[in-house]
Write a protein that binds this DNA or RNA. Sequence first.
RNA 1: GGGCGCGUAGCUCAGUGGGAGAGCGCUCGCCUCACACGCGAGAGGUCGCUGGUUCGAACCCAGCCGCGCCCACCA
Length: 853
Amino acid sequence: MADERLGELKEKTRYEAAEVEARVFAGWMEEGYFHPAAEGTAGENFSVAIPPPNVTGALHMGHALNGSMQDALVRMNRMRGRNTLWTLGTDHAGIATQAVVEKELRAEGKSRHELGREAFVERVWAWKEEYGSRIVEQYKRLGASCDYKRERFTLDEGYVRAVYRVFKRLYDKGYIYRDNYMVNWDPGSHSAISDLEVENREVKDTLYSIDYPVEGSERVLTVATVRPETMLADTAVAVNPDDERYADLVGQHCVLPLVGRRLPIVADEHVDPEFGTGALKITPGHDPTDFEIGRKHGLEEIGVIGPDGRMAEGAGERFAGMTAAEAQEAVVAALRAEGRLRAEEPYVHSVPFSHRSGERIEPLISLQWFCRMDELARPAIEVVERDEVRIAPPQWKRVYLEWMREIRPWCISRQLWWGHRIPVWYCDPCEETIVAEQPPERCGACGGELRQEEDVLDTWFSSAIWPFATLGWPDETPELRAFYPTSFLTTAREILFLWVARMIMTGIEFAGDVPFRDVYVHSVIQARDGRRMSKSLGTGIDPLEEIDRHGADALRFGLLAMSSTQDVRFSDAKVQQGADLANKLWNASRLILLNVGDAPEEVRPERVEDRWILSRLEATIASVTANLEQYDFAHAVGEAYAFFWSELCDWYLEIAKPRLYEREDEVSAVLLRVLERVLALLHPVMPFVTEEIWSYHPARQGHLAVHPFPQADESLRDLEAEAQMQAGIELTRRLRAWRDLVEAPAAMVLAARAEGTAPQEFVGRLARVEFAEDGGDPVAAVGPVKILASDEIDAGAVSARLAARREELRAEVARAEGKLANEKFVARAPAEVVSEEREKLECYRAELEELSE
RNA sequence: GGGCGCGUAGCUCAGUGGGAGAGCGCUCGCCUCACACGCGAGAGGUCGCUGGUUCGAACCCAGCCGCGCCCACCA
């Protein structure tokens, strides 16, 4: 290595992530490590498809966590020599992207309707070209080793072909159909949305009780509602069939106040006789429950609220044109005037809101495209039941299965312009419907002009086929052969149904195999105060700012360290711990690299400390690797940290320093080997700092990114060396503690005499104790070591210390004696537990006796 | 309404049947020739509450209290 570089290393006493990361990343990209050839089979290769972020998105903490996990496993497998692909791309995100561009237009005083569909879509594409790569660049900042040359977009040309193929096949199988049905209408995005895009929120409303007179009678039926304006669309009143109060009324009619419509009184078991008066107004046009009751009883479906959220013609002249809120007030006022309003009381209940726009859902009946899911779900249930797709942690398996078993038809059409326009054409003259992957010229039946369906597909319809559509499906590409099925998926639970379940269904149906073998559901990182991180709450923490401040390695380490199977709060301390670790790696490496001598290739050291550190290293490699393979990232990084910081830096490096300064060959060989393996082990988690340090390592032949990942060498495990070193470390600790206790000055060397076998050399050096054959009188015993009298030691402190230790020992002896005196314990506890307890007791007694001299 | 999970040191979290752990914070001592983003030594916990099972419970069981999330058509 050039002396110049070593000089640099000597100068830099701090690791500066900001100065290193971009350069190191560029180095990987130049070599093309992340762009594998499409060779081999999926069985031999390793592949992951990133959950495609929205093009409108910016990297948030969830992406950063998920990316850190995926990259750790992807890098580990790449280092193991597997042909590894991590597919990256973005989702066109229909509603979100359309909203962004519409907002831009509004700022210019324009609307999409003025532009027209074609020009608007062009405008969105222009937006995408300009801003769509932002999040991709942000993944690079994180260090994600994705194949940036194979970047995909859910609306790119090949992908659209795949989407249309899927639509056509599902249509031909009879799964996709068009129907007039109750949907969740989102007044914010002016589109229907699926059940999964709806969230329920607690809302304070008023519950109004309204009297509906029974026709030809003095009786009234009092019904309760939080939405009196929908009464204009009532077409029945329902009571429970077992409710004796109303048995005689079933089959008769009520008269709808304000409107005068005759409403049949029907019996339906859905009605809860306990609630209110036990009579329920039925509004099939604007309530999902009523809709189902209505279809069951063949009731008329009237719409009084339009897609614009205003009262429609059906509401009558008096109310048409009002907003629903205005109409509510007007209806209540009118009812009050007619004396029909019996009661109004505050009422808290949960109501649906659009997850996208945040507006209150308006349930209404409209003509939409649906996909039947039961047939698709069946095999997707079986593969999870049989663990062909393993979902971890295990409780999510059940959650998945329960949802899948009750799956309902999926509303797949959206009244948007940005997205996959549904590949359906209508011929108005002959009422023909044509579904095709390519736009047909003319109507096959009558030769007439065709009109394409206006609606686009739900964004999730296209992301459902992500793992294989990104690889070129429906063509039989080499990529598909090499990288499908993918190896695993890590995800947040919020998209388990929205995305994961649908990928499993489409994977089996279209690609002939499950899309991945393992699904790992990771924790959600909450804000520091325990609230959810969200832009609207202002609780978001920007991962890029964390990277600016502490480096990508620090953030990656921190996120993995704080990850868990349960939700956790974002921990600045863990990120700081990562930054400190990067710095410590840098400095420990400086110590080693600047001082090693010529190292022999083979290392079979004699000395106990060398055998010890090699043994501990191999044990660490084994357990870190096992934890990574089980998606237990927190324990993986915690163990790597503990080994490196405590065992390697705090003990071994201190013990080895004199030999290192002598440039001794054997210790050089041990240290270079340990460093190499530690860097490689940590590289999947902290790729930048490890790669940078590796560039100074004399054994370096190429990038660490493609260096073999360490495999634990069991032959180097040495339990005898571990036990000996443990004893030496323990003794050193006790001597240091004793020094502190008697307030011996830090620099002072204590005189001592060892009883029995002499302690290892490092004990005296690290505890600043000098052992002599003879000398003064012992003033205290620390284990097998007698501390000799000296002027600096405070005799009072010593005797206080001895007294305290005797107390501790007496308590321990009493505890152990008590336990062993318990006949049941001795009789029923396992033999080794009992004998351990006896051994402890003997040790305590011996020490106590020694101190009592 | 159903389901899942959580309550352990001041804070954030590990630990899931045999003597309470980590990181941060705190106290004391160290600029010891890799690192003060450091080194050494400490203090700090009736493991939410109450019962039960067991020779033995933070850990298993039951109930209660508090908190969170998911699913669900009680107006």
